[in-house]
Design a binder for these strands. Structure first.
Lengths: 380, 380
DNA sequence: TTGTATGCGTTATCAA
DNA sequence: TTGATAACGCATACAA
């Protein structure tokens, strides 16, 4: 093996007991034809030896496989097979950002894991398509990807990648967003989740709140979110999570206008820290911070430390996602758990189903639950 | 767009001013032939319109593209193109585990990010191949993957996937391990790194040490590592990191036999916590824990808390990797920084280079450095 | 059980 | 600048 690894050409130890009528001198990879000629059968039979073992005698098959082996033939070329079968046995995965920002988010990792294992279990491969500034992969990448079904992970409505998918006529599964009528989708109870969290805080007696949200609009702006910016939010997830928080508070008598909202352009810890710093320097200072993701919440914990506030003594913080780290942060984070791995698995199953010709079922909405840890406590 | 998304078949709005001599009634995707016939030129010309714009008049090209558009033709089929060009423009990425375990490791995420952006920048796609219990992807997956170069990420020597790569005669880039003579490789100064860390601790006056390592042998065993198990370590990375620690201590007069070593079967926080608990209950209790990864170190911090020990007051801890979280842990972790993103980028560049026909250069070894944070202090 | 013929959708070579 | 024609490597009805 070591030797074969050294050069691109595998060491073809041509057996002397077989006739090589083709390619005997050329420095080429062996093909179905090569072994067919060597064994003295037709291409079709060799093909069957690999794909339909029951279509030929065990002994012949044995002989074919042996010859193939000694010829250095590894089996049907994947690309040629794909062309002939018109199926590449791969699912594409489109991300909103470069993996850079995205992969620092454990939530994505877990979803991807669920997806990968499902897909892998069905002998399909996974083609990764990172996004760029446009909020998704470049259309050219999508157009040329060798995949026969696409999974979109939390893409903005405007992502050009989606049109590329449509143009190719590929089946599509979207995770979380955008909402595309008639396409398969798996999402979670975003609205319900933040309602639960807000309710939890209200029950603990809090009355002064601040909300820390990731992007409400696709313009990449960060800052306090004006009432204007809070309405007509194009991202469904942001809209639902923010809505759950504000609606619940309002029902309890807390006017949305009195709840400062910071919109971070992304969902990472550092942006969360920045936003929380602003929120915590408002007057009156919020006693509870409602975050739309765990990453933002971690940033909020950091900001509290920066300002000398203790959590949950001076401040309560809730997140959303329940990534593994939430159990280990200081203090452990109260958060809304969404079934991340499950989301990935469901997306994978949906993709496989569409591939098999199934029609897109109505969207799957997975249940969330509140996990109470040490970052929240009752008002002093 | 929305409509096109609803059904698998794009809405072919057949223009009345073009002649459709082919496929006019069949429910098929249009091909090069379809548009060639419609425009009244040859296949080759249409192909050129997409791939070699300079090979035909701008006006004709314009006309071809327009017709294609109105026919619902999105451009050359990726698979067919790959067959004809004998290149799939994709690089395969092989992981040691299912993404499950692997993705919880931020180090992998960052490396993958570097790789993905490099590859993506060159219009190549990335095919993910998660591993299973064998320590790598299944050979059948590798054999059938549509990629023309493979990147192995920290695989055990024994991974069957590697033979599959060799059998296909695909160029290979390995990250970290295994060491395959003649294959391209990018790695970091593992030995140097742990030497630095051990030295740091010695300088702080520590004399009682414990080592927390990830797998030394591929048998999946966890537990105290006997002298026997510490020698002939098959994993290069484990060997070098452990070696750097023990050698440095020995040079300072600390006999390896007096340094307890716990071997965890993987590199995650919970396993680290487990191992650290054992190490911290030895007599005499170590005043410093040397870990081979940040994840294990985080587990050690947790174990210290569990036992009521303060870090760095009662115990110093060092990690390896410098993942982002290391800066935020409690306390922030002293660790050996390796250039993770760079490792991924270099691997990507190497892969692209091999693809272009380059010969494997000698292994690249990236520099590491010690980042001193608050998890280490001098002996009281 | 095995073979024949044809199709899969491109790219590339070489003439015209 | 454009067009025949031949690969590319395989799968699959259908016939033998």
């Amino acid at each position: 093996m070591t030797e074969a690894l050294q050069s691109r050409q595998p060491a073809l130890s041509v057996p002397s007991n077989t006739m090589l009528t083709v390619d005997s001198d050329r420095r080429r990879r062996p093909t179905l034809d090569t072994v067919a000629a060597a064994v003295g059968v037709s291409r079709a039979t060799v093909s069957n030896a690999y794909n339909r073992p029951d279509q030929l005698s065990a002994s012949l098959r044995e002989r074919i496989l042996e010859t193939a082996q000694s010829l250095g033939y590894t089996g049907p070329d994947p690309v040629a097979r794909s062309l002939a079968t018109r199926s590449s046995a791969a699912v594409g995965f489109m991300l909103p950002e470069g993996l850079s920002g995205a992969f620092s988010d454990p939530a994505l990792s877990i979803v991807l894991d669920g997806l990968a294992s499902t897909v892998d279990g069905h002998d399909h491969s996974l083609v990764l398509m990172p996004g760029d500034a446009t909020g998704g992969p470049r259309p050219s990448i999508v157009t040329r990807a060798q995949a026969d079904v696409m999974v979109a992970y939390s893409l903005p409505d405007s992502a050009p990648a989606l049109e590329a998918v449509a143009a190719r006529g590929l089946p599509l599964v979207v995770i979380d967003q955008p909402v595309l009528p008639g396409s398969a989708r798996v999402e979670v109870q975003d609205y319900t989740g933040t309602c639960l969290a807000a309710d939890h805080l209200l029950r603990l007696g809090h009355t002064r709140f601040g909300v820390l949200s990731f992007a409400l609009h696709p313009d990449g702006a960060s800052g306090p979110a004006s009432p204007d910016r809070r309405s007509d939010v194009p991202f469904r997830v942001s809209r639902d999570r923010l809505g759950g928080y504000l609606d619940t508070l309002e029902k309890a008598g807390v006017k949305p206008d009195n709840v400062p909202v910071w919109e971070a352009r992304g969902s990472d810890r550092e942006l969360g820290r920045l936003g929380a710093r602003w929120l915590l320097t408002r007057t009156p200072r919020p006693s509870a911070l409602l975050c739309t993701s765990d990453q933002l919440a971690f940033g909020a914990l950091q900001a509290a430390r920066d300002l000398g506030l203790t959590v949950p003594g001076d401040l309560s913080v809730v997140g959303f996602d329940d990534v593994p780290e939430a159990a280990y942060s200081d203090p452990p984070l109260t958060t809304v758990r969404q079934p991340l791995a499950d989301k990935g698995r469901r997306a994978g199953e949906l993709a496989l189903k569409l591939l098999a010709g199934g029609r897109p079922p109505k969207p799957t909405r997975l249940a969330v639950s509140l996990v109470e840890r040490a970052s929240t406590a009752s008002m002093k």
